[in-house]
Design a protein around this nucleic acid. Structure first.
Length: 479
RNA sequence: GGGGUGGUGAUCUAGCUUGGUAUGAUGCCAGACUCGGGCUCUGGCAGUCCUGGGUUCAAAUCCCAGCCGCCCCA
């Protein structure tokens, strides 16, 4: 892709930029099945890093991995009323086996609560069987009818879904917040994307949940995007699915449940938050290639340069850094520079005769303009540089996020800002579904997140309807 | 549902008014180049011109029907 094409595109049309970059950086691709994404090795490698990070954190909380069926019989899906109501419009159905019609329609799971909780109801008899702490890495299908977007909105979602059951509500709530905290960590520590943490409104919460918690992000076009959610399901599902146990007082009780999920979408958000007009900029911790070394040959010292470059790369690898040497022939160094900038590789080393003969390397960081040089004996400094870059990216992203949030209580202003996606607005709100519906009609925006802490109200009255305000909340357009 | 607009190698594109089997670029392959920012040069590869039908000696081009995409309106 020529640089001209990307010029200023990020500022003028973030989504167009995003598509160009994700496709050309070979992160993901469209497929012939409309709305279904192909994750290419470079993109999938990032998912593997995220997966490993989360898996370790989940297991530290006692969660074990499991696998449940892809298909869910219709009657199971219908057991919890608000759940099916929420998902019905986007469920894909299997109605035939070969050319025979099925007696019972099978839903391709849009999420696995129902099929899992049916099993839970048979597994739980006593308080000794609790808690159940399970997670699965899988995909779910939701038949989106709006335009699909790579990573952000696809019909098949690659994710993890955790499903826990407890003897009491306190444990369930604690688990919900624990997981929310893990998601916050993944976004901020790993992806260097700052998040707003809090609760979803009645209208925005998960179908069948008592409370939904979210980590919400803010993009450079002032749209918000939900990166992960954690739900306290209370006893809604356990009552529908008869998940009962006898407690230590010989009393029957329904379990308290949670479910929580993070998907590939988190990566899409990261791309949107960190790129520039040359392409992606990957935070070092998620980057499949953290350092790329490009040999610059001159025709007469090639052997020596390549040997030196290989030695350098080995030394870097032995420090635990994901480092590659790109010695492909037929591509000029300039071509490779552009290629790796597009792919967002954090650090590029240039190794030619100048470097090889002086025992040093030229270093170019993806997020800085100037090239520097580094003595080979100090090569361990790359690790420090990567850590610094990771920290700086989060800092910069946080600054950017904060600059896009406006605290405002003037109704007219708020409406006009929301309508034009001029910012994310924090304001005081009554929190009712009816009020949110009106806001959506007027502006296209929705409530994104309600802070967890008890904050001082920006105003006593709801900015939108004038009733008594209950809490402050963030509003905005969203993907 | 109504209206508009488009469909040409893997990708983008010219040609269509005025019919004569397709233009250029990117790409891919082979090679050259003191290969330090997508360089340059040589040769080659690559197309059911969305599908079906019609008109014609002859259709990417004109006509009809259909399919698919995008935009606008309901």
């Amino acid at each position: 892709m020529c640089a001209e094409k990307l010029k200023n595109m990020r500022e003028s049309n973030l989504i167009e930029w995003y598509n160009e970059v994700v496709l050309n950086a070979e992160v993901a691709d469209f497929s012939e099945a409309k709305g279904f994404t192909v994750y290419r090795p470079y993109g999938y490698a990032m998912w593997e890093v995220l997966e490993e990070y989360l898996d370790v954190k989940f297991k530290a909380k006692g969660v074990k991995n499991t696998y449940f069926p892809l298909l869910i019989p219709e009657y199971l899906l219908k057991k919890e009323a608000s759940h099916i109501k929420g998902f019905a419009p986007e469920v894909a159905w299997v109605t035939k086996g070969g050319d025979r019609d099925l007696d019972v329609k099978l839903a391709v799971r849009p999420t696995s609560e129902t099929i899992m909780y049916d099993s839970y109801s048979r597994w739980v008899k006593s308080y000794r069987d609790l808690p159940i702490l399970l997670n699965q890495w899988n995909t779910v299908v939701r038949w989106e009818t709006k335009e699909t977007r790579l990573f952000l909105r696809g019909r098949e979602v690659l994710w993890q879904e955790g499903h826990c059951a407890f003897a009491d509500n306190k444990s369930a709530e604690e688990n919900t917040l624990d997981m929310l905290n893990i998601y916050k960590g993944a976004m901020e520590e790993l992806l260097a994307v700052p998040v707003l943490v809090g609760r979803k409104s009645e209208a925005e919460k998960f179908a069948g949940a008592v409370a939904t918690y979210t980590v919400e992000t803010v993009l450079s076009n002032n749209f918000a995007s939900q990166a992960a959610t954690s739900h306290n399901l209370g006893q809604n599902f356990s009552k529908a699915f008869e998940i009962k146990f006898i407690d230590n007082n010989n009393q029957w009780n329904y379990v308290y449940q949670t479910s929580w999920g993070m998907s590939m979408r988190a990566l899409g958000i990261m791309f949107l938050v960190h790129g520039d007009n040359k392409g992606l900029i990957l935070p070092p911790r998620i980057a499949p290639i953290q350092v790329v070394a490009i040999p610059i040959l001159n025709g007469k010292d090639d052997k020596m340069i390549l040997k030196y470059a290989n030695d350098v790369v080995s030394a870097i690898k032995s420090d635990g850094i994901r480092c590659e040497l790109d010695s492909r022939e037929g591509y000029t160094p300039g071509w490779k520079f552009n290629e790796y900038e597009l792919k967002g590789v954090p650090i590029r080393l240039e190794i030619g005769i100048k470097e090889a003969s002086a025992a040093k390397v030229s270093v170019k960081k993806r997020n800085e303009k100037e090239k520097t040089t580094l003595e080979l004996k100090n090569i361990k400094m790359l690790k420090v540089a990567l850590d610094e870059m990771q920290a700086n990216m989060l800092k910069e992203a946080r600054k950017s996020m904060e600059s896009r949030i406006i605290i405002e209580k003037d109704t007219k202003n708020v409406i006009s800002i929301l309508k034009s996606a001029g910012a994310i607005v924090k304001t005081s709100w009554c929190g009712t579904e009816k009020c949110e519906e009106t806001i959506k009609e007027k502006t296209g925006a929705t409530s994104r997140v309600i802070p967890l802490e008890n904050e001082k109200l920006i105003s006593d009255k709801c900015t939108f309807c004038g009733d008594d305000a209950k809490y402050n909340a963030y509003f905005g357009q969203s993907y």
